[in-house]
Design a binder for these strands. Structure first.
Lengths: 214, 214
DNA sequence: TTGTGATTCCATCAATCGATGGATTTATTA
DNA sequence: TAATAAATCCATCGATTGATGGAATCACAA
């Protein structure tokens, strides 16, 4: 049995795929309540009833977007993990940030959706994805941070800080770029450089302190 | 001539003040489109028409909330600036984060509103507040970061990273706290500790590097 | 070509949205 | 106390929302 979402992911050129792509983008920009089924239908270029025909009610489509986004994010994180595996901490942090930033800049709707999921409520109950904490723990492990009972929350919070910083700059580009008065390309470079500068320092300060005392 | 917002700020016990307080909280949780006038009226315990009587149309109330939040945030930042003025960089960062985190934990609706402003669109045009970039520049100056033409964007981006991290943890508490499986108080402590650990290291790495090379 | 199922659109529904007029109540002032 | 203003609520409006039934169209196998 193949679900609607699986079909849409398999064939992005199909109507289900087109709708899903538009829904990812528009839900990411306007959120659940800010997005109307008519907005989506108009963006796809179809009638509103065709939308319901393929995806059922609004909430179903929204939850499909959530799952889809989470799948993409998990796949990318696993890809990054494979590449950084075995390298020194400083490189793991730098390469991880570099790859994730490039990816999110190419798919800003991912960051947009993540932000809405974290920071906004909806009037109706909406799917909770319980795997997010597990992802975070995987990253903690992948980064080689302290995992003992005492330090785990701190390590997880550190990872959350990095991820949130990246999502913030991607999703908030339209707010922050005018502040910085930069072109898109310059903004990308600056943001990546800044995040990398801050977090490589933060994640390697113990090592650096160790060097000093040697 | 005294505006409705000024009256509401002056007297929080007045009906205008009660409405404003509820609007700050609910708009911060559900966003513009996720919040209905009936929700606000019910929360205040009044009729929907009384809401319009005091604040006009929905957009007017929303914009009042934006201005009100910005006022609070600016006042707090100025208060922090006075206290950290003249201290060493490491202390400025630590005290600044400490004070702002305490303040935002007490007024999470501020972070909520800021997040919505940065990361979500509305279908209708809504007030833009042009002073935010200026605040950021003030913080850059207050922190004593490099302000020359070459480094200013980097310094501003660094400040944005700190602010966004704080807002993220405050606004995202309901998402992150279950991940970390912590009680409210422990979450507060951990988050403050994490943010301070990361950013004191980031902001003082040049100094530390300088010490090393001495 | 014909028939069958999949797809798309038009028309329309009930529910909910923001908003307002007007009656009623409460507070203030003369 | 009487008169005026301010505040509140009830009833209702038009517009928009999510959603659906049913006709029309399309794709494709028999």
């Amino acid at each position: 049995m193949e679900s609607t979402l699986e079909k849409a992911r398999k064939d992005p050129e199909s109507m289900k795929g087109k709708i899903l792509a538009v829904a990812r983008r528009v839900f990411g920009e306007y959120g659940f309540h800010g997005t109307t089924m008519r907005m989506l239908a108009k963006e796809v270029g179809i009638d509103i009833s065709t939308l319901h025909y393929h995806w059922g009610e609004k909430k179903d489509l929204y939850e499909a977007v959530i799952i889809d986004i989470n799948n993409d994010l998990r796949e990318k994180l696993m890809e990054v993990e494979e590449i950084i595996h075995g390298r020194p901490l400083k490189d793991r942090v730098a390469i991880g940030i570099d790859m994730m930033m490039d990816y999110l800049f190419e798919h800003p709707e991912i960051s947009n959706m993540v932000m809405f999921r974290y920071f906004a409520k909806t009037r109706h109950d909406v799917l909770m994805d319980f795997r997010v904490p597990e992802f975070t723990i995987e990253i903690v492990r992948s980064m080689g941070l302290k995992e003992d009972k005492k330090n785990r929350p701190f390590s997880m919070a550190s990872i959350l800080t990095v991820m949130n910083s990246m999502h913030s700059f991607i999703s908030g580009e339209e707010s922050f770029r005018p502040m910085l008065k930069l072109k898109k390309k310059d903004y990308m470079e600056l943001v990546k450089k800044t995040v990398m500068y801050i977090f490589t320092a933060a994640f390697t300060q113990d090592e650096e302190a160790g060097k000093e005392s040697n």
